[in-house]
Design a protein around this nucleic acid. Structure first.
Length: 430
DNA sequence: TCTTTAATACCTTCCTCAGT
DNA sequence: ACTGAGGAAGGTATTAAAGA
């Protein structure tokens, strides 16, 4: 019997049976993994597991059937592991020394003393704590909305009233209400987050949502979740008078998505200064240098050579005109409402235009679909996944640091953006 | 043990509807 | 046309489990 340590504090305990037992027909050994914050906690927990296994082994007689013993041992080990949930990550017991009295301190919260914490108060405190984490306001708003949905449905008054049975009942209710699988998962995750926080605050002993799952998997294939634009859709769009008479901003933003694979918001927030020259080639720099300009995440930062189609139809001239007019933003789109949503105006104009074209919401391809189309076209042309990932700003974990870590040359990327060709007639567009 | 793959948690953005 | 609200999906990081 020995302990060894694996990276990131996963501790494995491997228990090898003594030879005498192996001779009796116990050809297996037991492997237990424990994930903890510190080595000290892992050691303590391992000792408890080993104790349980030792006790079980002592009960082995010549009558013991190996298969049955294995399953009963597994149950005992699980029971020990489950008992760890009464201990927080730092190894501090969650139970109070003075049970029932709760003391809360926070910058904006007076010291409170009460027998139980009202759930709505806990929610407000959680939300206020969450909004300090530097996440987008919409994220916090969405969390609030989804947890409120749970509270309104089940109507518990206090944090410690919520049992796993309540949580399960709520799950069933969600399943009846007919949202998508992923949305249901996110609803459950929101409430789970609240109770996780309640555990840390010592408002509750356990997270009632911890073991609640949805089981049935989403039937939607990940790569067909949103429909791409087929070539005939693109041709129909280009030859439709609604698109031809649309504002230039809308046309150009659309072209940027089609030919460069930009996200709608990335196209809408482009500045004139983001069109640069590198290695002698015109490029678009996706960055967060401007006022209110932002990127989705670190891997979104990238420099893209501009596609020949855009060059041919006057993209550089457009930028130069904007420069001459001393415009900071390339387009007239501005981040609207408190969410500072850059793509909203564009997406709404585009959606209304599609309505006029007779394309029905829900079944029509959407602006984000241009990005799917871009990626899919490159995929169909057997372009290396790493190249595509870099063009669209995805993180690619397959590239090993130090070996393939260098960025591709702009001239190489240029060769690949130009692979895009939709073969559409655009003589009347410009 | 070490590596690879699958599942989950969490955050951000996009899409649509209804009210004004 | 603009907003708020809520549903839906995209995407990364972390964690669990399986494989070699």
């Amino acid at each position: 019997m020995h302990l060894f340590r694996a990276p990131n504090c996963t501790y494995y305990t491997r228990i090898c049976y003594p030879k005498s037992l192996r001779d009796m027909g116990f050809p297996f050994d037991v492997k237990i993994s424990l994930l903890t914050k510190t080595r000290a906690i892992a050691k303590k927990r391992n000792l408890r597991v080993i104790l349980a296994v030792n006790q079980a082994m002592d009960s082995i007689t010549t009558e013991t059937v190996p298969g049955e013993f294995k399953s009963s041992l597994n149950k005992q080990i699980d029971a020990v592991r489950l008992s760890f949930s009464d201990v927080s990550a730092e190894g501090v017991p969650l139970r109070f020394a003075t049970k029932g009295k709760i003391e809360v301190r926070g910058p904006n919260l007076a010291v409170k003393q009460c027998e139980q914490v009202p759930l709505k108060l806990a929610l407000e405190m959680f939300i206020s704590s969450k909004s300090k984490e530097g996440v987008r306001t919409l994220t916090v708003q969405q969390l609030h909305q989804r947890i409120s949905h749970f509270i309104d449905a089940i109507k518990p008054d206090f944090t410690d009233e919520v049992t796993s049975a309540c949580a399960l009942g709520y799950r069933d209710l969600l399943l009846d209400e007919g949202r998508s699988h992923k949305t249901n998962k996110d609803y459950l995750a929101a409430s789970s987050q609240l109770f996780k926080w309640c555990c840390l605050m010592q408002f509750t002993d356990a997270n009632p949502f911890a073991l609640i799952t949805l089981k049935q998997h989403s039937l939607v294939e990940p790569n067909s979740a949103r429909t791409r634009w087929q070539k005939r859709d693109l041709q129909a769009l280009f030859s439709h008078e609604e698109f031809q008479k649309a504002e230039n901003d809308l046309k150009w933003a659309t072209l940027l998505m089609m030919f460069q694979g930009l996200r709608p918001s990335e196209a809408c927030q482009l500045r004139t200064a983001d069109v640069i020259k590198q290695e002698g080639l015109y490029c678009i720099k996706i960055n967060n240098g401007g006022e209110k300009q932002r990127v989705k995440n670190a891997s979104s930062l990238r420099i893209l050579p501009i596609h020949q189609f855009l060059l041919k139809h006057g993209f550089i001239e457009l930028v130069e005109r904007a420069n001459k007019a001393k415009r900071v933003q390339l387009f007239s789109y501005i981040p609207t409402n408190q969410n500072e949503d850059w793509s909203r105006q564009y997406c709404q104009y585009f959606g209304r235009m599609q309505n006029r074209m007779g394309m029905k919401p829900g079944s029509r391809p959407t602006p984000y679909g241009f990005r799917h189309t871009f990626i899919d076209e490159l995929k169909q042309h057997e372009v290396d996944e790493n190249i595509v990932a870099e063009l669209v700003g995805h993180k690619n974990q397959k590239i090993t640091f130090g070996r393939y870590g260098k960025k591709y040359k702009i001239s190489l990327l240029k060769k690949y953006v130009d692979v895009i060709s939709y073969d559409i007639d655009c003589t009347r567009l410009f």
